[in-house]
């Protein structure tokens, strides 16, 4: 039972301790801590629910994994193999085994077609850095494009410039990512031979090749994001421009562009940070189709493969990892918002 001592049980004890403290003393700081813990409990519930749901559905697939991943000829050897792989466990016991392994950092076995296993962490250690890197590029590119666009459209709100850019952005946000990927792949990749359309080259094998392979996927993923980011920034900036401190800054004679960049951008960027962090989780695993089209070998492609190959244990680990990353990025964004806009610290949320 040693594994219980570091994990859910600890978490439960600390929650109990805090609740008792709260009942006894009540202070506002403790209340805030308790609220954080309640939100955390909800997140953990969602995480457990999502992984359990997926394992349940994957187990409903016709044909049991035991038929796929054993190769012994006689019945006795087959049974031994099934027991060895842990395929004889029922849904709940299998899930609990996976859960305690996952909490300890073991991502479970990845079944090989000829019997035998290899650790899922091998696949994860290859796919996650790729996905993270692509996500980073996409975020940087879309922020670099959308911040100036947001500033321009808000500054010239309801004038011709704004109308044209906003309409273009709206159209961009509605174009499906795969449509863009296929079209760009044809024109820039096949027709003009400018960029390769398939595969991923790690950074260590040449920086130029690395970026060349990622241009098309990053563009296809960035366009919809740019559109949503600049629209959010536009609304926020328009409401900030009505604030008194902006009038004050303008009346002091500070130039318009300086006011926009120095005074307006910072308080207007909180919603943008929240949206960007919400997109992080989605970008790690939700890019299934772009991953598939450009054969990047990121998490999206691995998840698709795991579904078709009935790798329910690996699938649970993938989804759980994405959810954990999602939570981490949300916490990070909250901290960042506190730095960017100190006014939010005093708010009683």
């Amino acid at each position: 039972m040693a594994f219980i001592a570091t994990g859910p049980f600890d978490f439960f004890c600390s929650w109990l301790f805090v609740s008792i403290c709260y009942r006894l003393f009540g202070g506002s700081k403790l209340r805030k801590l308790n609220q954080t813990l309640q939100a955390f409990t909800k997140l953990v519930l969602v995480l457990l629910g999502a992984t359990f749901l997926l394992s349940l559905i994957v187990r409903l697939l016709p044909g049991s994994p035991a038929d796929f991943y054993t190769n012994a000829l006689d019945e006795e050897g087959r049974l031994a193999q099934i027991k060895d792989l842990g395929l004889d466990r029922n849904v709940i016991s299998g899930y609990l085994h996976w859960l305690f392994d996952f909490v300890r950092g073991d991502f479970g076995p990845f079944f090989m077609s000829g019997g035998g296993t290899r650790p899922t962490s091998l696949i994860i250690s290859q796919a996650v850095p790729r996905s993270l890197l692509i996500m980073l590029y996409v975020q940087v590119v879309s922020l670099l494009i959308s911040i100036p666009l947001g500033l321009i459209t808000a500054y010239r709100a309801d004038k011709a410039t704004d109308r044209v850019i906003s309409t273009a952005l709206f159209t961009g946000s509605a174009i499906p990512g795969f449509a863009l990927a296929l079209a760009l792949g044809y024109y820039l990749g096949v027709r003009l031979q400018m960029f390769p359309t398939i595969g991923y080259v790690p950074m260590s094998e040449g920086l130029g090749e690395h970026f060349k392979h990622l241009v098309l996927p990053v563009i296809s993923l960035s366009v919809p994001l740019c559109a949503s980011y600049s629209r959010i920034l536009r609304t926020e900036i328009i409401s900030t421009l009505r604030q008194d401190f902006v009038t004050m800054a303008v009346s002091k004679g500070i130039s318009n562009s300086r006011v926009l960049v120095k005074h307006v951008l910072r308080p207007s960027s909180t919603a943008l940070i929240t949206t960007a962090s919400l997109n992080m989780g989605g970008l790690i695993g939700g890019t299934v189709i772009i991953d598939q089209i450009f054969a990047l070998g990121g998490m999206g492609q691995q998840i698709t493969f795991a579904v078709f190959a009935r790798q329910y244990i690996a699938l649970q680990s993938y989804i759980a990892l994405i959810a954990v990353a999602f939570i981490l990025f949300t916490v990070l964004a909250d901290a960042l918002i506190g730095v960017v806009d100190p006014r939010t610290k005093n708010r009683n949320v």
């Binding site: 909800k42 969602v46 995480l47 629910g49 999502a50 989605g282 299934v288 579904v307 989804i319």
Partner: peptide
């Protein structure tokens, strides 16, 4: 709702 939303919709 959150459980279903936390799984990417395509997956």
């Amino acid at each position: 709702f959150n459980i279903f939303l936390s799984i990417p919709n395509l997956i």
